[in-house]
Write a protein that binds this DNA or RNA. Structure first.
Length: 425
DNA sequence: ATCGGCTCGCGCAA
DNA sequence: TGCGCGAAGCCGAT
């Protein structure tokens, strides 16, 4: 259980239990708590461990042993596999995830099955290539949606594994666990979002009861803040995207397109991007027209040239940008619309578009609870032209879409947004 | 307040 | 080969 940290609606786990029951063998769930995950810090670990603690409780109640080891996820898995008759793994799409599963597959001698359950339509089923835009992926996803919108039946193991003697760290005491992990502790945990499947479901319920009608009407505006807040949970696999999609599809609400577009089309487009484009985390992954036009304007004079430190501290002349940065640093989650504006301004205020790209990724990955996620890489890349079309040529941006504060003021009550962010503690 | 133009590439139709 | 169209826009003309 490396990428889908949940017990319910987990195809890999259900399949493992089903096969174990047929073979009259016990099931053990393993998670490798790695220090190697790029850019993971205290904030991310805390949120993740809150989720894993719930996993532990749920598994215990099903008499399933949950083995957590600090160290290389693959080395420990390979060692464990020597006592197993079959290994079932889940799936992730970033370079680090891909390499775990690849190394595992190469070193495990018992049969190994990978089950994809953090997407609705499996990435290669949806498309065999990197898609140019949402418009090209959307019909492909929609064509297979009906088939894949399905959840596993609830199954329980016949044989208990709870008393098997396998070393594991004590996941309940995760403060102690965290003290053993080499990680950046300067990024504190979020006071606004707590991890775990129960919290994810609570967020979804709150959204349905208090926000979705407004969300469907106006979108998640900076001042109203009516997001589902599912992205941190989806990032760690603490909630199944299929579960969330079915929940809304079967709900009483008549308007549901905007949310489904986000949850399914945009999210799985981002997975398509990181899966098929090895340069998803750099300027080089952008479309040719965008790289060309940004490079042509790399010498253009910038009215402001902020250092990474000034950006990180929210010390620019732009109160809306500073507010967005502060919202991210304080809560671990920036408003969705502001993420676009935020990225666009980093391009505008940074001499080199390569630096701008890297800095945006660095800040996103450091502070967002859903950082280091396909959505984060794709969101930043979008600001640089990915999955978008060219627009009127202008300084610095060339043909890449431009956004300014006038646009924010035209559309939103920005004073309200700034006030809300300033009230965050 | 509203509208057209900007500009590239995909994918369908012919 | 032609043509319509595309996540969130901007700007100048009317």
């Amino acid at each position: 259980m490396q990428s889908a940290h949940r017990v319910e609606n987990n195809w890999a786990l259900s399949y493992a239990i089903e096969l174990a029951n047929k073979a009259d063998l016990p099931v053990v769930v393993y998670f490798g708590l790695t220090e190697e995950f790029p850019e993971a810090n205290y904030r991310h670990y805390w949120f993740m461990l809150e989720g894993l603690q719930e996993v532990y409780s749920e598994l215990s109640s099903m008499n399933i042993k949950f083995v957590v080891k600090v160290g290389s996820p693959t080395e420990n898995l390979v060692a464990l596999s020597k006592k197993a008759s079959l290994i079932i793994v889940d799936r992730g799409y970033l370079k680090a995830n891909k390499s775990w599963y690849k190394i595992a597959a190469e070193n495990i001698s018992v049969p190994l099955i990978q089950v994809e359950d953090n997407v609705i339509v499996p990435v290669e089923e949806a498309s065999q290539k990197e898609e140019y835009a949402a418009a090209t992926l959307r019909p492909k996803l929609l064509a297979k949606l009906n088939y894949f919108l399905d959840l596993p039946a609830h199954v329980t193991p016949i044989k208990s594994s709870i008393y098997l003697e396998i070393d594991s760290i004590d996941i309940k005491d995760f403060q102690k666990t965290l003290s053993h992990i080499k990680t950046d502790k300067t990024v504190n945990r979020s006071r606004y979002f707590a991890g775990g499947t129960s919290q994810a479901k609570k967020a979804l319920e709150t959204f349905f009861q208090r926000g979705i009608e407004e969300y469907e009407e106006t979108g998640n505006t900076p001042e109203n803040n009516v997001a589902s807040n599912l992205s941190p949970y989806l990032h760690f696999g603490q909630i199944s995207p299929t579960f969330a999609a079915l929940k809304i599809l079967r709900s009483k609400y008549s308007e549901k397109h905007r949310f489904l577009e986000q949850l399914i089309v945009r999210r799985e487009l981002s997975i398509n991007f990181v899966y098929y484009n090895v340069n998803y985390d750099s300027f080089l992954g952008l479309p040719d027209w965008a790289k060309k036009t940004l490079s042509e304007h790399a010498q253009d004079t910038r009215a402001y040239n902020y250092s990474l430190e000034q950006l990180e501290n929210g010390q620019t002349h732009d109160k809306y940008w500073n507010a967005a940065q502060r919202e991210m640093v304080k809560t671990g989650k920036m408003n969705g619309y502001m993420r676009m504006y935020w990225g666009k301004k980093i391009i505008e205020w940074t001499q080199s578009p390569h630096d701008a790209f890297n800095w945006a990724i660095y800040l996103n990955n450091k502070y967002e609870l859903d950082g280091r996620d396909p959505n984060g890489y794709t969101g930043v890349a979008w600001c640089f032209g990915k999955h978008d079309r060219p627009w009127t040529k202008r300084a610095i941006f060339g043909n890449v879409r431009f956004m300014n504060d006038k646009g924010l003021e035209r559309k939103f009550d920005m004073t309200k947004y700034v006030d809300r962010v300033n009230a965050l503690t």
